[in-house]
């Protein structure tokens, strides 16, 4: 009896987590123009509408570009710095570790309005470039947290062997250390891509005319519900699952 109660309540919670997502997928195949219950006819109509929605497709392109460039730059800046955080002691290290986490511990809206106020003062006008700079700033926090634990598990003998064979520290970093943590880097990169594609609070304030995908969907929802959102949401959901499975694969390999 008690067993049924425990299992039942756990199942209910899982249902609470997944039914809303399944609802979107189910409704994306509705043929109707409002999200009404019960659905009377099914079709792929809304997928067609979506595939022909130019501003939506542009937003997808914008999001992919911002996510790609932000991730690459965040890795270029973040990976060497994470290694330094792991390796050296220096004045202000604790402070730096706290500062780098600020964009994920403090609310996005405050970071957003702070950047909105400050960026134009240093010549960064509101645009996708500003959005990218905003994204890189919080992706650095992801890169550092994801990779710091990986560096700690790296065998120090590898590095020592490279020095003994005459490699300079920088050569060692690029030819020994980086290749050895590559799966962790790929895992972190995938997470960065997903987070950048989803980001709203900072993007909301830094955007000019070119929308990113979540902002475009936000706009569609504000203008009134169109079932087109069901179709695009379903695709986003599926893409997230694929990326998540990939990133789990990579992080599992890292643990070996």
């Amino acid at each position: 009896m008690r067993r049924i109660f425990t299992t039942g309540s756990a199942a209910l919670v899982l249902a609470f987590i997944y039914l809303p997502l399944l609802t979107i997928i189910w409704y994306s195949f509705s043929a109707e123009s409002v999200n009404s219950f019960p659905i009377k006819a099914y079709s792929l109509e809304w997928y067609k509408v979506m595939a022909n929605d130019e501003s939506l497709l542009r937003a997808v392109g914008n999001s992919l570009r911002v996510a790609f460039f932000s991730t690459v730059i965040a890795l270029f800046i973040g990976v060497p710095a994470t290694f330094a955080l792991h390796k050296f002691d220096f004045i202000g290290k604790k402070l730096l570790e706290r500062i780098v986490l600020m964009p994920i511990t403090l609310p996005g809206i405050v970071t957003g309005v702070a950047m909105l106020s400050f960026f134009p003062k240093i010549g960064v006008e509101l645009s996708l470039v500003a959005v990218g700079i905003g994204h890189i700033t919080f992706l650095l926090a992801i890169v550092v947290t994801q990779l710091l634990s990986r560096f700690k598990r790296l065998d120090p003998n590898l590095e020592q062997a490279a020095y003994d064979l005459g490699a300079t520290p920088l050569t060692t970093f690029f030819t020994v250390i980086i290749p050895n943590i590559r799966t962790a880097i790929i895992g972190a990169a995938l997470l960065c891509l997903v987070l950048s594609m989803d980001e709203i609070p900072v993007t909301f304030f830094l955007i000019a005319r070119d929308n990113t995908l979540p902002i475009e969907i936000y706009g569609m929802m504000r203008r009134g519900i169109t079932p087109e959102v069901n179709a695009i949401s379903t695709l986003i959901f599926l893409a997230t699952i694929v990326i998540l499975i990939l990133s789990l694969r990579f992080s599992r390999k890292t643990n070996d």
Binding site: I17, Y18, P20, L21, T23, I24, Y27, N35, L191, V194, M197, D198, I200, P214, I217, Y218, M221, I225, V229, N230, S233, I236, F237, T240, I243, L244
Partner: peptide, 15 residues
């Protein structure tokens, strides 16, 4: 669900 888009999850409750 942690990784699924915020806007998608919010939208589901509208339906």
């Amino acid at each position: 669900p942690f990784w699924v888009s915020y806007i998608v999850r919010a939208y589901s409750w509208k339906i």
